[in-house]
Design a protein around this nucleic acid. Sequence first.
DNA 1: AACAATATAGGGCGACCGTCCCAGTTTCTA
DNA 2: TAGAAACTGGGACGGTCGCCCTATATTGTT
Lengths: 196, 196
Amino acid sequence: MGHGETRRQIIEAADNLFYRQGFEHTSFADISSMVSISRGNLYHHFKTKDDILDAVIKTRLDRTQHMLTAWEEQTATPKDRIRSYIKILLSNWSMIKDYGCPVGTLCTELAKLNHASKAEANKVFTLFRVWLKAQFTQLGHTQDADSLAMHVLSWSQGVATLGNAFDDLQYVKQEVEKMYDWLDDLPVKKKQTNYE
Amino acid sequence: MGHGETRRQIIEAADNLFYRQGFEHTSFADISSMVSISRGNLYHHFKTKDDILDAVIKTRLDRTQHMLTAWEEQTATPKDRIRSYIKILLSNWSMIKDYGCPVGTLCTELAKLNHASKAEANKVFTLFRVWLKAQFTQLGHTQDADSLAMHVLSWSQGVATLGNAFDDLQYVKQEVEKMYDWLDDLPVKKKQTNYE
DNA sequence: AACAATATAGGGCGACCGTCCCAGTTTCTA
DNA sequence: TAGAAACTGGGACGGTCGCCCTATATTGTT
């Protein structure tokens, strides 16, 4: 078949461009030139720009879910898994400093555009939210697990935004350390082993 | 004279539209129709869209500085002044829930557009940063005043972004309470009276 | 080999964009 | 009161946008 290859390249290119330039600022010409196909050909694969956006969001959801599952399997403790999330700020810094957080910036843009796919884009946040909540639950925070998850989410989001604005790696490193400390200083609710 | 009145209305309309729709999504037609003048007339007052943006940023800087100065004069203690800043999340919630933080969203958009005025837009953040730093300094945090200021800045920024994404007032209230608690639990460095 | 399905390039459509020009009108100034 | 300056509306410009149509080429299936 090989049918999906061009389509996959289109989504990948659109994913990059939406992140680096924003959704609205990215045109069919931008995407098609990056994949080295004609605009007409691009339209054969996706009828509208919104269709491309939906496909991009879907792959982001898949990719994120895959990453979270990998963390779940490869990292021993819930606390270390949460640290894996926080560490993205540093491992993806070269992109964040120029383009901010891919999740937050897209949600913000779609909110201003009153775009129909805003809810879909939000699901990426929800993916992280649910996953983080599960980690905090495993740490024994049964009551406030979701609240803690949202706290980590907003904290990292703010650091990404300010780090992007000021282009300040030193500050991001400081905040990451603060997040690690905060995580260590959380009251221990119960053992994370579960008999029963 | 009265010369500045139309110009003032243009800036005000552009300010609103840039916030609610984004800079790029706002056209000359949008602005001129909101002020009830023709596009040609609008061009008489501002030669380019970037000129309008610069004027908008300038008034935002003025307005912000004025607000900070008012807080400085009307609020007794540094801690209460910082609380005034945090409280914006609640007092401006009706706007934030739909359009996010005006400062952060503009900086993010201009970053993606690689816009020349990005640095100017950043100065609004710097205004808050310097002011918050002064408050923490008055609280005795001479060493880490700037770090604390940046912490408050990023925290509130993240709450605004997530609050906007999830449209969740309850969560914002929780985070505001956490910020208040964090502020109260800060180690007291020294008396804020200064005998020299 | 014949045929259908898919892929591709190219161009055209109407709309809107930022910008610019111009011809009137109003307001200010000497 | 006459001329200058500022203001206003209307429209034209080149360009780009998302979207659509069509003719040709490639591929896959019998």
